[in-house]
Write a protein that binds this DNA or RNA. Structure first.
Lengths: 216, 216
DNA sequence: CCCGAAATTATACGCTTGCAGAATTACCGG
DNA sequence: CCGGTAATTCTGCAAGCGTATAATTTCGGG
């Protein structure tokens, strides 16, 4: 009855770190930071708790790494999708909005992570920096895109007003992101991205709806 | 050296429950649910931990009561402010937007609470009901107000499109609320509510900016 | 084939958590 | 002024937390 020691396989550092981070993100997304205990993370990653401390000096380090990956992945996902968007600014802006309001950016997992990390971000300067980077990597391209679109239609704004337009457009996207992520059952598929493209167009006075057919 | 027992005053049930709820909300707003331990709540409320169980069957009950009060108070605060807004629909809509983007609705405490409760709301049907009630008490009046404004300017929409306008306007407000609450230092006082009134007007094609002078 | 290094598990410790029940104290009605 | 009630404090417990470290297992290189 001497219960034998558990068998295991050796894995590379990158693999195990990745597994642990993924497990932590899953748990935070579902149940908030309180659900991401050392033991729960280890179990979901398929290892024993002690291993966490072999790859991360402390639990806080692991959570920090998880947040960094979360932010980086969001930014990468969205900027990568812009690569195949063609040259026309209007089409690009429509595509930008559309993609922001589809999974994986808009879904309940993402908003769960966002909310779960909020307090950690607010109380830790290191995390706040990570956050700001990701936030600007979304808002800055949006502002450029809006500038190009206005220029293409013959209008042109002073920087101050252009920034205000970007803030408002960004807010509209954020708000739809929020509503769609928190109450996904209240919207049909495509309803949210369609509404986003239409209303960002209305906000800026741009005929974005012309490009709705290109979406998918 | 027999350290003597702590002195205390008896308080009514309502008073003590209110204190405990307020303490719990403060802690959640600042540090998330994990900061709201039984002992921390009691300390901030100026009592000993055992008393919590005298007024609430369990900690979960207390948190639930706290959330209910949070939602109710938000709704009350905002609807109460509409009382002195006059009869003109346009002025009322402008006021509605303006007030949503000022404290106490827009500030870091509110977004902290919102994020802190998100996971509890998602995983507990009882809390989800409370949430939905509060959410609709904001969106429904907004939809009515938009309908009145459009009717007053001679336009009229089928219900489906009116709802879409309300969702978009609500999203714009939510998004500005989010940005202003998370990064308050990025905006000057009045910048956010002003932007909100202006852009909600742009979104709906309504001259809301005419009423900006009435705000304060 | 086997040995050493490193990855992984196992065990243990001190602290905090939510909860329970007994002991005490404040206050009200007589 | 005094006794009873219930509001409040106090003490303790079992479970879970993050962390530390020793014991084991895996696996590639000689």
């Amino acid at each position: 009855m001497t219960q034998e020691r558990r068998k295991f396989r050796r894995e590379g550092e990158a693999q195990r770190q990745g597994d642990l981070i993924a497990a932590a993100l899953d748990l935070i997304a579902e149940g908030g930071p309180q659900a991401a205990t050392v033991r729960a993370i280890a179990q979901r990653a398929g290892v024993t708790p002690g291993l966490i401390r072999h790859y991360f000096r402390t639990k806080e380090d692991l959570i920090g790494a998880a947040y960094a990956q979360f932010v980086r992945r969001m930014a990468e996902d969205h900027s990568a999708t812009m690569d195949g968007a063609g040259p026309d600014p209007l089409a690009r802006l429509a595509w930008f909005v559309w993609r922001a309001l589809c999974p994986p950016l808009t879904d309940s997992r993402t908003v769960g992570l966002w909310a779960g990390f909020l307090h950690l971000v607010r109380n830790d300067p290191r995390m706040r920096n990570i956050h700001r980077t990701g936030y600007l990597s979304f808002r800055d391209p949006l502002e450029s895109l809006i500038g190009e679109c206005l220029a293409a239609t013959g209008r042109s704004l002073p920087p101050r007003q252009l920034q205000a337009e970007a803030i408002a457009a960004n807010a509209l996207i954020d708000g739809l992101w929020l509503e769609g992520s928190v109450l996904p059952e209240d919207f049909q598929p495509d309803e949210l991205p369609r509404l986003g493209v239409e209303k960002v167009g209305a906000l800026l006075g741009l005929p974005l709806t012309d490009h709705l057919e290109d979406m998918q």
